[in-house]
Write a protein that binds this DNA or RNA. Structure first.
Lengths: 193, 193
DNA sequence: CATATGCATTAACATAGGTTAAGGAATGAA
DNA sequence: TTCATTCCTTAACCTATGTTAATGCATATG
């Protein structure tokens, strides 16, 4: 993606002035990931924000050998370890490419340093966080109030085509069930759809 | 709580200049709630932000007659329907006092209108949201990776004394289990502590 | 090519937690 | 005081989902 298109697309979220963009643009670097590569591993410190432009990334936490998928990132989203950046502490989450990925990364601290001279960037961050908050709340309500079958069907609508591109056990983990149980659900759905 | 103390206490979160405070202070109004009163009900529109100074409030979603407690607010927290304010749509959540409560409320739109002349207030909002994000993520990880017994014990540490002041079924709902099962857990814990 | 590895499915079995129901303490209203 | 209501607990039962294990495919590797 070229810089001008990116500016236009980010302006949809919140206005970034040309002057701010000129400086912000200097911070941007492309990143590529192969399938199964990790962007960030649990326990690492991170200093970058990322924007996904191609591919799919999962974020998960792990405990006692089990992994719990929290979200999938698709292009246009920010697979960024925000909590680690804010608290300046090791990341509790891991970010892994499930497909080959293209990203744009930039230094969190340099970005933040631009706030002093470009207020619009601070406003931009606030808008992004607000959007994430709304999305997260909606998702939480959905996950708690529905059963696994319903959430599976919602997943298929929210991420069209994704279920055929990534292992099913990642979907099961996202739904909070075992792969075996997801398999039972799928069998049930094909019998009487 | 008098205004000066409040200013000092909010300054702990992020600096609010005296000029900004002078204007912001004009927006503040006290609110009292009796036990079981609702601050906001599902389906309502809301136009205010709230700061809790005394008491406990639960936020919950309901579906098909069931209620799911999402969080408890204790003094110092902001029991505010942020998603409803941001999306300008009816609230998906309900906020209810579990104990007699004292709050301070202020108009969300008037607050936001102050951003133009007082940048520090926008920065303040960003800080609050960042803090909420960190807290929520930590809580989510905890709830998913632990079982109900562990989460019950964490609840008791996080909200000291609260379990004796509110009905147990609210705690059970918060933990994602039935009151009957919570009762079993409690019996189990008293047998061998 | 042969073998190994990862993944989905299915079946048999085990169990945590839900459901229903009943009884008793505590609280509040008449 | 008595009666009603709310809430906690316990027991008996039941169901959804996890666990273990075996099978078969597909893909990757030597």
């Amino acid at each position: 993606m070229d810089a001008q298109k990116l500016h236009i697309s980010l302006n949809q979220i919140s206005l970034i002035t040309d002057e701010a963009w000129e400086e912000f643009e200097q911070l941007l670097e492309p990143v590529s990931l192969d399938r199964n590569d990790h962007l960030i591993r649990v326990g690492e410190r991170t200093h970058f924000c990322y924007l996904l432009t191609e591919g799919v990334i999962r974020v998960y936490y792990s405990k006692e050998g089990n992994e719990y998928n929290k979200t999938f990132f698709v292009p246009g989203m920010f697979p960024t370890a925000l909590t680690s950046l804010l608290t300046e502490s090791p990341c509790q989450l891991s970010f892994q490419a499930l497909l080959p990925c293209q990203l744009i990364k930039f230094s969190y601290h340099r970005f933040r340093n631009l706030f002093a001279s470009h207020r619009c960037l601070e406003t931009f961050l606030l808008r992004v966080l607000e959007g994430e908050w709304v999305k997260k709340e909606k998702h939480d309500i959905q996950m708690v109030t529905n059963d696994a079958i319903t959430n599976y069907m919602i997943f298929r609508e929210a991420y069209p085509g994704l279920e055929n591109k990534i292992p099913q056990h990642h979907i099961a983990s996202y739904l909070g069930i075992t792969p075996i149980h997801l398999s039972r659900i799928r069998a049930q759905l094909t019998k009487k759809p």
